[in-house]
């Protein structure tokens, strides 16, 4: 933060900045710029979001789907969730899962982005193409491929581990134990999320003037110091965005668990999104499913509050 503003402050007289602020405040320009995007999002999502909130206060099952009219039941869906011990287990599991996935994604994503910035152009193209390939693989397909890799009978992983004498992994069942099962799921999620984080961070890195790095290095800063005091502050806005996005996405992980558990996960593999989906589409309690989904949004807002605040403030620090 300080380095970023420091850079800017050094470059511009305070007087100019005060004048500019006054100028940018007035006028309809920002609204005109925002209008197209707002209209599209508002027109498409406004009514459905209103419906979603409405559903969460109603009993809405198959008969209500047919007549298009729900029965108002007040807060009963919400009280039912809060009194369901399963909800709290699922919530805790989801939060833990998200924390683990976001940290691992950011760690590996940043490392790979830094690596990309230092590679020669051929190697960089090779690695980025590889990352894009990973990203481009449809989730349904990639999850199935991972499922094969950890398969009980045919898995490459069991075969390799056994050949490497890491133990007897013949007929090792990775999903028999929930912890190792979630380990596999985490690997799939992080693997799939790394390309986006790495490529975006690399794009942001490429905006950082190389001169800054060199100047710092000439001054005798180590690699870690350069990263911490030069690179990181400049990357901070993008970094915060990526962390919050990762939180939002990992909190909603669905396909990876759903497909890996054969479309019928047992209770100990439930995450919030699965819980909401099962209540909606399997049990046909759309009111309850909506309430779970909205509770998810609230929890996410709380969990990511710190980052959201940072982002809202980020523009004002100048």
């Amino acid at each position: 933060m300080s380095a970023e503003t420091g850079l800017r402050v050094a470059a511009e007289p305070t007087l100019l900045s005060a004048r500019r602020r006054a100028r940018l405040t007035r006028g309809a320009a920002p609204y005109a710029l925002l209008a197209p995007a707002t209209i599209v999002v508002g027109a498409v999502l406004g009514y459905p979001l209103y419906l979603l909130v409405q559903l969460s206060f109603q009993k809405y099952g198959l008969p209500q789907l047919l007549t298009h009219h729900g029965e108002w039941t007040g807060l009963s869906n919400y009280t039912r969730i809060l009194h369901d011990s399963q909800f709290w287990h699922v919530l805790l599991r989801t939060v833990t899962f998200t924390a683990a996935n976001v940290s691992l994604t950011m760690l590996f994503g940043t490392l790979i982005a830094l690596l990309l910035a230092r590679l020669g152009s051929f190697m960089r193209l090779l690695l980025t193409t590889g990352l894009v390939l990973v990203w481009a693989t449809p989730v349904v397909v990639s999850v199935n491929v991972w499922l094969w890799m950890v398969d009980y009978e045919f898995g490459v992983l069991n075969w390799t581990l056994t050949k490497l004498h890491a133990g007897n992994f013949v007929h090792h069942d990775w999903f028999a134990n929930t912890l190792s099962g979630f380990g596999v799921i985490t690997a799939v999620v992080v693997w799939g999320a790394i390309p986006f984080v790495a490529i975006t961070l690399y794009a942001a890195l490429s905006q950082v003037p190389e001169e800054l790095h060199e100047a710092a290095r000439i001054d005798g800063a180590s690699f870690v110091q350069v990263f911490r005091f030069v690179t990181m502050p400049l990357l901070k806005p993008i970094f915060i965005i990526l962390v919050s996005l990762s939180i939002i996405w990992d909190f909603q992980v669905f396909n990876q668990v759903w497909i890996m558990r054969d479309g019928r996960p047992t209770n100990d593999y439930y995450l919030m999104s699965i819980y909401s989906f099962v209540e909606s589409f399997r049990v046909s309690e759309y009111g309850l499913g909506s309430a779970i989904a909205l509770t998810m949004v609230l929890v996410m807002l709380v969990v990511s509050f710190f980052y959201v605040r940072q982002m809202v403030r980020a523009g004002e620090a100048e």
Partner: peptide, 12 residues
């Protein structure tokens, strides 16, 4: 807006 799970939005 990005926090609303897609599956919950299908019906609305």
């Amino acid at each position: 807006v990005q926090m609303v799970p897609l599956n919950a939005l299908i019906i609305p």
